[in-house]
């Protein structure tokens, strides 16, 4: 399934002439071939994991000699997926809640007020998204281990807040800016304090934005490898870290068993991705911070 509709109709708007040279036709074909080649390989990589997880024996052939579901049972027991999934959802749930509680009010203040030091704060919220997790993760892990929360679930949650709180803030600021401030002024006139206004006026208006940003936080936290890896102990591993250790120690266990675990991870992530994509445009997942650092 390549499913890339060739833009024959809309392409006509680009050129002054409908006559295209052979060169530009070849160029268009070359570009689409590259895209299709990339997508085929990408889907091949995913399909290889899924196929292998159902394979009885898969050696020196295009397809396995038979199919079975027993690897899922063995992976569930070998990798204690029950516990790992429980830990994953506890960590992810806590990260989502906390980054919502911290991020949404902060985004409101950033969107509505001009105050001294706002630029510095904006930089503080941008940097954790621009600096890669490994770079700040190692000093952060050092601090967490020395203060005694390293290797515990609390440590993993704290580490994961570093990119997610700024993410919520940066996604929420434009959402809040587009709400008419007169709605809030009206609430104030009727005697609502900041807290009441938040609960009864802003929260319902902001719900789509909050939902979208928190779903993206959820997907990102499930897939966040580096920070969790650096701060997790044996009892606070999330699914993606457990998967890393399984792949790292490949050869100890059957490949199919590791692939079954990879499929469990993939399904866990993709369910939330599908839900998230109902609320957001895929490009938003990447370009959330592009406007601010541009100039």
């Amino acid at each position: 399934m390549t499913a890339v509709s060739l833009p024959s109709a809309s392409a006509a708007t680009t050129g002054p002439s409908a006559l295209r040279s052979v060169g530009s036709r070849l160029w268009i074909i070359a570009v689409w071939t590259t895209v299709i080649f990339f997508i085929i390989n990408l889907l091949g990589i995913i399909a290889a994991v899924v196929t292998s997880s159902f394979a009885t024996r898969w050696l020196r052939s295009w397809l396995p000699s038979g199919y079975t579901t027993r690897w899922y049972v063995s992976a569930w027991e070998e990798f204690q997926l029950h516990d790992v999934l429980l830990v994953t959802f506890q960590i992810v749930g806590a990260v989502v809640m906390l980054s919502g509680l911290l991020g949404v009010p902060a985004a409101y203040a950033m969107a509505r007020r001009e105050f001294p030091g706002k630029k510095a704060l904006m930089l503080l919220f941008l940097l954790p998204l621009l600096v890669p997790p490994v770079t700040f993760g190692i000093p952060l892990a050092t601090v967490l281990y020395q203060s005694g929360v390293g290797g515990t679930m609390a440590g993993v949650i704290l580490a994961n807040l570093v990119p997610t709180v700024p993410f919520v803030i940066l996604v929420m600021i434009p959402f809040i800016e587009q709400i008419d401030p007169r709605v809030e002024a009206a609430a104030r006139v009727f005697g609502a304090g900041t807290f009441k206004m938040f609960i009864y006026v802003l929260l319902p208006l902001l719900m789509p934005g909050i939902l979208a940003s928190l779903l993206l936080v959820l997907v990102r936290t499930i897939a966040m490898f580096e920070l969790t890896f650096l701060t997790a102990g044996p009892t606070s591993q999330t699914l993606v870290v457990a998967l890393y250790y399984a792949v790292f120690a490949a050869g100890v266990r059957a490949v199919q068993s590791i692939d079954a675990m990879a499929v469990v991870y993939m399904v866990t992530t993709l369910i939330w991705l599908v839900i998230a994509l109902r609320f957001v445009n895929p490009t938003q997942m990447v370009t959330r911070a592009k406007r601010q650092p541009a100039h």
Binding site: I46, V240, Y244, A262, M266, T269
Partner: peptide, 9 residues
């Protein structure tokens, strides 16, 4: 979304 670990596997 799936991340580098899954892509690696």
């Amino acid at each position: 979304t799936l991340g580098t670990v899954l892509v690696a596997e």
